[in-house]
Design a protein around this nucleic acid. Sequence first.
RNA 1: GCCGAAGUGGCGGAAUUGGCAGACGCGCGGGAUUCAAAAUCCCGUCCUGGCAACAGGGUGUGGGUUCGAUUCCCACCUUCGGCACCA
Length: 929
Amino acid sequence: MEPTEAGTYDHRAIESRWQRYWQEHQTFKAVDGADKPKFYVLDMFPYPSGQGLHVGHPAGYTASDILARHKRMKGYNVLHPMGYDAFGLPAEQYAVEHGVHPRATTEKNIANIEKQIKMFGFSYDWSRRLATTDVGYYRWTQWIFLKMFNSWYDPAADAARPIEQLIEKLQNEDYLISPIGELIYNDTENLAAILGDPVGAVKFYELAPAEQRELIDSQRLAYMAQVPVNWCPRLGTVLANEEVTNEGRSERGNHPVYRRALTQWMLRITKYAERLLADVDALEWPEPIKLMQRNWIGKSTGAQVYFPLDGRDDVLEVYTTRPDTLFGATYMVLAPEHPLVEELTGTNCRPQVADYMTQAAKKSELERTAESKEKTGVFIGAYAVNPVNDQKIPIWVADYVLMGYGTGAIMAVPAHDTRDMEFALKFDLPIVQVVEPPAGTNWRGYVGDGIAVNSGKFDGLTTAEFKEEIIKWLTEQQLGRRAVNYKLRDWLFSRQRYWGEPLPIVHCAHCGTVALPDEQLPLELPEMEDFTPAASDDPDSLPQPPLGKLRDWAQTTCPQCQGPAQRELNTMPQWAGSCWYYLRFLDPHNDRACVDPQIERYWMAPDSDNPVGGVDFYIGGAEHAVLHLLYARFWHKLLYDLGYASSPEPFRRLFNQGMIRSFAYRDPRGMTVGYDQVDKSGQPPRHKQTGEPLVETVEKMSKSLKNVVNPNEVIEQYGADTFRMYEMFMGPLEASKPWNTNDVPGIQRFLQRLWRLIVAEDGCLHPAIGDAEPDAASLRLLHKTIKKVTADIETLSLNTAISQMMIFLNEYSKAAARSRWVLESYVLLLSPFAPHIAEELWRRLGHETTLAYEPWPVFDEELTRDPEVELAVQINGKVRDRIVVPADSDEESIRRTVLALAKIQEQLAQKTVRQVIVIPNRLVNIVAN
RNA sequence: GCCGAAGUGGCGGAAUUGGCAGACGCGCGGGAUUCAAAAUCCCGUCCUGGCAACAGGGUGUGGGUUCGAUUCCCACCUUCGGCACCA
């Protein structure tokens, strides 16, 4: 490397030079299977938007980089990769609006964002870089999708298994098929011997081939179903719930969204609900995030109860968490989509019901939520019988009951359920008390626990006891059973868009839905001129995936029968690619497997450091608290079940960095004012031209608020090391905090002072530096600093690690002689934070290679101790004096010394000493009155 | 509405988890250096009173526990994040 022996700190020269060095020497290449403990530090990979990087991204990347560099110096084999989550709506929408191909914009955006990321000097192993849009990557995303398609959830194994095993079991008659197409476990030893075959059940061979196929398809983990979806005609696609705003509009573009029943691809994540819930406990994630995952899964326990239908043989099935309130059920409600509505509606009521249904169906999400406060519904002219008291109760249809939860029908207990009470009051339905609340509380609308009343023989039971008793009773009477429900729904997995992974499926008139065989993967996304979706303003328009325009491509042959077949035209949603990228980083160039099993085990298998297994440290924003993390956990568990992953969970430890926001200024008229117009010298800040006082707030960065900070500009002016350290110094990593460019020079000054401590003006090593032994005070300062910085990195308290390094520099600058060895240790401590300047100083201190693998400095607890300590002397909790005593002095001698102090005697003149409390090495408190 | 996180100087924030509130940085005031400026270095900087030593007050608000509370308990206020008719 050519020497640039400048005397001044030139961040541009130093940073570009060391970035080149690291690249040329492949300094950060991770070796698979190396004989060292492994450590996998992962960043949530970015979406390469046209906006490029903002100052929020590097906060997490810097923290993970500090951890990665620290762990390398601690002797770990560190895997620290980076890639791009590049499929999805934003890129495509941008492409549509600008008339460019999404591949072109995506490639441009990736190149741009990568250039930006590389300016920070992160220690990524760039040889593992990937993008979800690479054919070599999404070939395996398609492969995993087919694994789901070709699997079922085996309740006996409580795991996913190949679908062939189900077929085998059906052929062996381990399972029979109920009249409604459900699997029944054929327990030959018990049931059949006594009862014969279960009533109405059929055997697999008794089904016609088409029926057999239908049954198998209904068990696949990836399946097609007609479901109510969020249909956005303007975008021409269906959207996931999370892509729809609270106002019932599309997050992208703010277009209206409608509920429509459409046939779509679904992933059966609900089969994993219990495991996804249970396994959260063992993860080292922030508690609030774990709570959000639990709430999203939304497990509840209660009972399934059968209400006989008046005048019919069948029953209406409801789910309730409060079976103890059965005696208070005075009416029932069906969701508008409930299959029995049509059948049950009495002749007289048909017009009203039909009318209500049309209105409900027409409503957009917006209207449905906007009217959420006012309950609507109609009586359908039919009755059910309350099984506990044989009372005839009316059945209504109302959209406050959702088809997607429970059975889509409820028993209404207006006395003890807020929604039911609102409805009952509006439509004048009877309200019967069945729970006695604690004294002083009105029973009307009381939803808490209490004592049972008006409940026949169950009167007097507590809510908890009642629940147990009634479930027992219902089970005995065959009127119900214990039941568990989850809020979690199956994952809507198809999009009518171009820029996504094509689903590797063909539809054959003869063979049905057929998976492409492995050797036909990848199914490449075909090139097309006009990839725009069929956008429309008509809510009744139907989805028309852009791929359908490619007639020649869509027409294909069936891999099974070689007959003519139609390709699946939908693509996968944006979340798909991010579900397994952390596995691909382990073995990114493998074209025979998604990841080599041996390599996968080396990095992911549980060990003594990481008993759960998976990525050791995952850092990213809390905005992915639920969806990405839940979806990825689901895919991972599937791969685990099928033997492709060796840990039950993908991410053992998770850390959420806080959002970086910035100050925004508004004048008295509420207009936003750009930073260049703000005079911050006084309070309040004023407008430079008009002198008007401005209101300062902290908000998300946005163009309209004129408070966007561009990281490139900051790096250009102050350097990457300064940028990195500033972001870590701002405050706790997990806290949301405001960027303040005015604070940045303070960090740069710190680095410059360090530079001048080591490098003289002529560029040589500073003459004060020598090889003499450091004095005791310097040694103590160094050991304290090693201790603090090491501990703080482990807990990612990086702000306080940096202040300790500042304290060191402030103190050590005063020392007359500078020890080369002390400075070297210090530079090593600094290196994870500010790697470029650290490498440069390391070299100038006489080393020829990178410091990235130098052993991390160790401290001696003994050497961190101060020989003397200052104690505060308090009287009744107020500091009145201070004394300096040898460290660890005994309490008795401290007590004597303190009571003899002149100031203290004076203060105690009129008082009696009641108690003297000595806190070793901290303070003394004299209690007196 | 429900759940979660957080309120400390002019600003960002620290405080060994019950032990000297305000570390560290920014800003501000004063000084040194300079022909001058930038840069750099030194001193000061929670508020009130005082030249000062010092005294009083102070961690969103009100109460409580304790020798002692930013830290623990109760009630309330505010901000941010998530969920939202989930039976």
